[in-house]
């Protein structure tokens, strides 16, 4: 049986804790489900944090300074608003200030819907992108998770790993889809990568052929041929994200792509409103229908 993303996270973590002298910090680690089965039960080095949301990351930073390369888990990415201060003000600046990096693997778990509402839902990786000294990525497949972990092991700064619960049971890899007759290139981030796979057939039924270029690293965002050539060939693009669109990763990357190519590139993310707990008030990852509508709007404007 193929390993899921959750299996992969758990295996990497166990290896790090058992053989790498690592530590894992988080709140309610041992609660039901061991954080969606991503934390290895009874492994050494698990540190249950008190409900001290701002000092918690400080403990992990201290451990990083002592060479323990900690994993710091935010069960809900919405808690990042409390946890972010020491992570961006200390961990991210340390290398430039003192030449001593703070290697800390920050697992920030995004979720949405199912009654999570204004408190527990949301995806906020764009916050981290704003500060110098941070690496930000959103792995959605097992191989991508390995790639991200290996990248973390090769450097000595904080890495924000923007996870999404929708990925945990998936074991599929997601190769880019590039075709010569595409009229638009989609650049999905986080859970929009699953939504896009449902939106592409809907668009195809309307005769609209799409490229799909999956984005794993959102900071640094590399403007390489893999990203630029499909855009140039298709003539326009749409960057999609599970986070808020306004001043978010999708708008930032769309801006970079537009400047690099001179082509129209739009952004689509969460709407600019707070999510509610009732299904009719949810505000999560753009749905396939929202993506279809955004593409149709983009093409109308282009023509």
């Amino acid at each position: 049986m193929e390993k899921s993303v959750a299996d992969t996270i758990r295996d990497i973590t166990r290896e790090h804790l058992e053989k790498g002298n690592g530590l894992l910090f988080g709140q309610c680690i041992t609660a039901v489900g061991w954080i969606q089965h991503t934390v290895p039960p009874n492994a050494p080095g698990l540190v249950e944090l008190p409900m001290a949301d701002v000092s918690g990351p400080g403990f992990a930073i201290g451990a990083a300074l002592m060479g323990r390369r900690p994993i710091f888990v935010l069960r809900f990415q919405s808690f990042i608003w409390l946890a972010i201060s020491p992570l961006v003000n200390y961990a991210a600046k340390a290398k430039e200030l003192w030449g001593k990096g703070v290697p800390i693997f920050i697992r920030a778990i995004a979720t949405e819907g199912n009654g999570t509402g204004p408190v527990h839902s949301g995806c906020y990786h764009s916050l981290f992108m704003h500060m110098p000294g941070t690496l930000v990525c959103a792995p959605m497949t097992p191989n991508e998770y390995h790639e991200v972990w290996n990248a973390f092991c090769r450097q000595d700064g904080p890495v924000l790993v923007s996870e999404h619960r929708r990925s945990y049971l998936s074991s599929a890899e997601m190769p880019d889809q590039v075709r010569k007759d595409a009229v638009v290139t989609l650049f999905p981030i986080s859970a929009t990568r699953f939504s896009v796979l449902d939106a592409v057939p809907l668009l195809e039924k309307q005769g609209i052929r799409c490229n799909v270029v999956h984005l794993l690293w959102i900071k640094p965002f590399e403007l390489n041929a893999r990203v630029l050539e499909p855009l140039k060939q298709s003539g326009c693009g749409l960057v999609l994200d599970s986070a808020y669109e306004v001043a978010g990763a999708s708008q930032s990357i769309a801006y970079d792509l537009m400047l690099a190519t001179g082509l129209p590139v739009k952004a689509l993310g969460q709407e600019d409103r707070s999510p509610g707990v009732a299904p009719r008030l949810e505000n999560g990852t753009p749905t396939p229908q929202r993506i279809v509508d955004a593409v149709l709007g983009l093409l109308r404007k282009k023509s």
Binding site: S55, F59, I61, G62, N89, Y90
Partner: peptide
């Protein structure tokens, strides 16, 4: 880094590690 008392949790983390 400059923020008041931010180093206290960090010092505590160092003591743990």
């Amino acid at each position: 880094e400059g923020l008041i008392a931010e180093h206290v949790p960090i010092a505590v983390g160092a003591a743990l590690a």
